[in-house]
Structures are given as C-alpha cells and as structure tokens.
Design a protein around this nucleic acid. Structure first.
Lengths: 167, 167
DNA sequence: TTTATATTTCAATAACTATTGAAAGTTCAG
DNA sequence: CTGAACTTTCAATAGTTATTGAAATATAAA
C-alpha cells in the first residue's frame, strides 16, 4: 500500500469509529489528518484535503482546540492560522477521557443521587432504590477506572511511546 | 419526589446518556423501564409506557436480547411474550463492554496493524508508522483496561451489589 | 384445518445532526 | 482610517438514523 493511501484509510477508519462513539465524524477526520501531517495545516489545506467547507473546518477545529488536543500555530510571514495536533496520543486519550467524564459521567451520578431521595416507603420504592444504588456503584467504578487510566500516565506502559517535548 | 416521577426521570436520563455514547435512545429507555419494573412486561406494556410503536419495541427488545441483557419470559395462561432485564447491573456493564470491544476496538487494531505494512522508506512514512504504533499501543492499553474491568467481576468492589441468582 | 392472536418486517416518513456558503465580523499592513 | 486577508456565525439544506404502522408471517387454541 502507498503512504498516501494508508494515511487516507487511517483518516476514514478513525472517522467511522468516532461516529459509533458519538463523536462527530468530521472532527475525528480533521484530527486524524493533523495527526499524520508532518507540518502545520491551514484551514484551506484541510478544506482541500477532506473536501469540506470553510465553516465546517472552522467549527471542528475550534471543537478540537476546546478539547485541548489541537493547537493554533503561527508561521512566519503568513497571516493565516495553522493547526497542529498534539502528537502525544496518550495525552489525547487522557483529554478525551477527562472531557467525557466531566460532561457525561459526573452529571449522571448527580441525578442518581438525587433520585435516591424519593419519598416512598413501599417495597417497590425499596427495590427501585436498590437498582439506583447498584447503578451508582457501577458508575462510580467506571469513573474510578477512568481516573486510574488517566493517572497511569508517564509511569505506565508509556516508556515506548513517542517522546514529545512537553510545553 | 414521587416514585413514578423518579422512575420516569431515570428512564429519561438514561436515554439521553445513551444518545451521547452512540447507543440508541429508545433501546436505553426500554432497558431502563424493564430494569425498574417489578414484573415482566409485554410489548404492549412497553408501547404504552414509553409511547412508542409496536415495531420500535420489537426492534429494540430484540437488540437488547442480542446484547444478552434482557430475556424473554413466559407467563402462565398468557400467550404473549414478556420481557425482563437482568437485574445484575454489573453483568450489564460487562456485556456492553464486551460487545463494544468486539465490535469496535478489535477491528481498529486490525486496521492499524494492516496499515503498518505500508511500503515506503521515507522519513514521512517512518513518522506515520510511529503514530500508528502509538495508536496501537493506546488502543491495546484501553483494550486491556476493559478486560481487567470485565474480569474484576465478583472479587472486586462487588460485594455490596444486589445478589442475584445466576442461571 | 381454521381462526384469532402475537410477532416480525420494511418502505415511508419523521426527527435529528452535520454541512454548506454567503454574510458579518475581525485583524492588521499600509 | 481603509481595504484586503482571514475567521466566525448561522439560516438553509443535505444527509443520516430512528420510528411508525400496516402488511406479511408465525404460532397456538379450538
């Protein structure tokens, strides 16, 4: 397989995986493109390569920056902005995990705790509370697993990853 | 809050969480309904409670059965089928994790390995392979974390969960 | 069998989410 | 300032995924 074909296939694969995890396909593709690119890319480079509109590039690049996995970069003598993806993939995983924990898991724990307050002494209510309790425990457990994964960080399995100079 | 309101809020909450993880909303709601229900429910019970069509109930119940987290049950003197959710939530988490590992993570590992075969000796190709390698490592790591989570099972944090009679 | 009851399928359609592109906004060199 | 270069916004629209409901199929009692 040729390099460009491989890069392309990678971009497509990542896009379709993203979709099934509720992440915008284009966002994943833009990220993948930046990740395998040797130099910073401008909005226009991205538009051209992925054949998508200016607005779409802007929206998705901004989202990636929000997630903390892409940064703006300035090129001397150029007025426009260029973008680079953090090449440290472990960092990527950590950021995504953190975001989703915060946006999705933590709110669920709140709702579950709130629902425990139901005022009712019937057996049925007791059973419901039992289910809620179990759900809270599993959710907390998942939350803990993710925390551990995030903290595993430098120490763990990481020695062989691409070394990057951290800011 | 009243019990029925609480159950309802729970069903809605679960549905919206599911959506953001790429799981069908109705599927999550049907599951939630069965989970907090004290007795087996028929297709019609589900239609009525969630205000959805017969076809939709059928599709989603079948999917839940496929995932191994809901089972058919027969009620004496009744011709129609009834459904119950496995009340062991840890089992639920395990099943979902297994399914997604198999359907999504493992195929990605295959593609990444395949792409490593790119025939090109340039520096650019080397960099690309490096990125692929890192991705494989993170993906494998995630896979391992999930495996551990699945195996943690009875031993781990689980002692307080609702006891269920396993088949 | 036949008939009534229950389940499954699937084309049509609704609901939702992503994308476009042109207009408005911003920035900066001259 | 002014105008060119670039970025952002957002209403319109395209594309995708979920849902309906009626017809086809299956099942079991009479």
């Amino acid at each position: 397989m040729k390099l460009d074909d491989a890069k392309n296939k990678y971009i497509q694969t990542w896009g379709s995986l993203a979709t099934s995890w509720g992440i915008n396909k284009t966002m994943a593709q833009v990220h993948a493109l930046l990740l395998v690119s040797t130099n910073p890319l401008s909005a226009e480079d991205i538009m051209e390569t992925l054949q998508i509109s200016r607005g779409n590039v802007n929206m998705n690049v901004r989202a990636l920056i929000d997630w903390g996995i892409v940064t703006k970069e300035f090129v001397v003598g150029e007025r426009k902005e260029f973008f680079v993806a953090d090449k440290d993939i472990w960092e990527l995983f950590k950021q995504i995990t953190k975001e989703r924990k915060k946006r999705e898991i933590e709110p669920v724990l709140k709702v579950l705790a709130e629902l425990q307050q139901v005022e009712d002494n019937s057996d049925e209510a007791a059973q419901f509370k039992q289910v809620l309790g179990d759900l809270s425990k599993v959710t907390t457990t998942v939350n803990n697993i993710l925390d551990k994964a995030i903290k595993a960080d430098e120490h763990w399995l990481l020695s062989n990853f691409t070394k990057v100079i951290k800011k």
